[in-house]
Each structure stands twice: as C-alpha cells, then as structure tokens.
Simulated assay, not measured.
Amino acid sequence: MFVDPPAPTPKTAEEKPPASAEDALQNPPRAWEFNPDYQRLVTAWNTVLPHLEGLRTALDKAYGLAMSPQTWDAPVGERYVEDIREWRNRLAAYRHSVLTAISDEAADTPRWVRTTANAPHAF
C-alpha cells in the first residue's frame, strides 16, 4: 500500500513574499509574485486527485462485489477476482507515481519569484 506524498500547498491570503535586506536596498525595490509554475502544480494536483479517487472507488466496489460468495458460482470467478486485484495494484502504483512526480516537482519549484514589474527601463 502506498501513502500519498505531500501535496503542493496553495497560496494563502496571509502569506507574504520573502523579504530580504537586498530588496530594501534596491532602487526601486524589486517585487515578488507567487510563482505561476508552482500554481500550475497545485492545480494539477487538485485536478488529478478526484479522478484517481473515482477510479479507486470504482475498482474497490467491483472488487468487493467479486469477493462476495453470492457473485460467483464457479471456480472461474477466482480468475476475475485476481484480475481486479491486479488492476487495483496497478492503479495504486500509477497513483503513487503521478502524485510523487507532482510533489517532487513542487518541492523543486520556488513558491515566489522576482517579477520585473518594478525593473527600470531605458526609454
């Protein structure tokens, strides 16, 4: 059984960009913005998780019905139960790999990036 990796956390209303001494010394000071790439990872996680949950729920329901003694009256039923069990294992591994990929990418992506909104321009 796999445990889901940590999800990327969305920006909260109270969250402020990082402050450093060099930012205050620049004239004009550089601004920060929430990283759009990090936000895309949050969106990807929130998009894919309900689909994976729906697939898991459907396979768990089918597996529960297949395991019931009222469902199968022949020895061939065990083969179908094994097939569904294998599908569940593959889905668990797939879920783990997809969520781990998103989580690892979020861990390597900075939450805040400097913006060029206050950068001086030569006109």
Rank of each mutant, 00 (worst) to 15 (best):
M1L: 10
F2H: 11
V3E: 15
D4A: 13
D4S: 08
D4N: 08
P6L: 09
P6C: 04
A7E: 13
T9Q: 15
P10G: 08
K11I: 11
E14K: 07
E15I: 03
K16M: 09
P17F: 03
P17E: 04
P17M: 04
P17H: 05
P18H: 09
P18N: 06
A19K: 11
S20G: 14
S20C: 10
S20T: 13
S20R: 11
S20K: 10
A21H: 11
E22P: 02
E22S: 14
E22Q: 13
D23F: 06
D23L: 08
D23V: 05
A24N: 11
A24G: 12
L25A: 15
L25H: 14
P28T: 05
P29K: 11
P29C: 05
P29T: 07
R30L: 13
R30P: 15
A31P: 02
W32A: 04
W32L: 02
W32K: 01
E33K: 14
E33Y: 07
E33M: 11
N35W: 07
N35D: 08
N35T: 02
N35P: 06
D37P: 10
Y38C: 07
Y38N: 02
R40D: 15
R40I: 01
R40S: 15
R40P: 01
L41Q: 04
L41T: 08
V42L: 01
T43A: 14
T43G: 03
T43R: 08
A44W: 01
W45M: 04
W45C: 01
L49T: 15
P50Y: 02
H51C: 06
L52F: 01
E53T: 10
E53C: 00
E53D: 15
G54E: 12
L55G: 05
R56V: 00
T57K: 10
T57W: 00
A58S: 08
D60S: 10
K61F: 05
A62E: 01
G64R: 05
L65W: 04
A66K: 00
A66W: 00
M67P: 01
M67H: 12
S68K: 02
P69H: 10
Q70C: 08
Q70H: 09
T71M: 10
W72R: 03
P75S: 14
G77C: 05
G77E: 04
E78T: 14
E78C: 05
E78M: 12
Y80H: 10
Y80D: 13
E82G: 09
D83C: 07
R85E: 15
E86W: 09
W87G: 02
R88E: 00
R90K: 13
L91T: 00
L91R: 00
A92E: 15
A92N: 13
A93D: 14
A93L: 04
Y94H: 12
Y94D: 07
S97K: 09
S97W: 03
T100L: 03
T100A: 12
T100G: 02
I102E: 01
D104V: 06
D104W: 03
D104S: 12
E105F: 06
A106Q: 08
D108G: 14
T109W: 12
P110E: 09
P110A: 04
P110M: 00
P110W: 05
P110K: 03
W112L: 05
V113P: 03
T115C: 05
A117W: 05
N118T: 13
N118K: 10
A119S: 14
A119E: 14
P120H: 08
H121G: 08
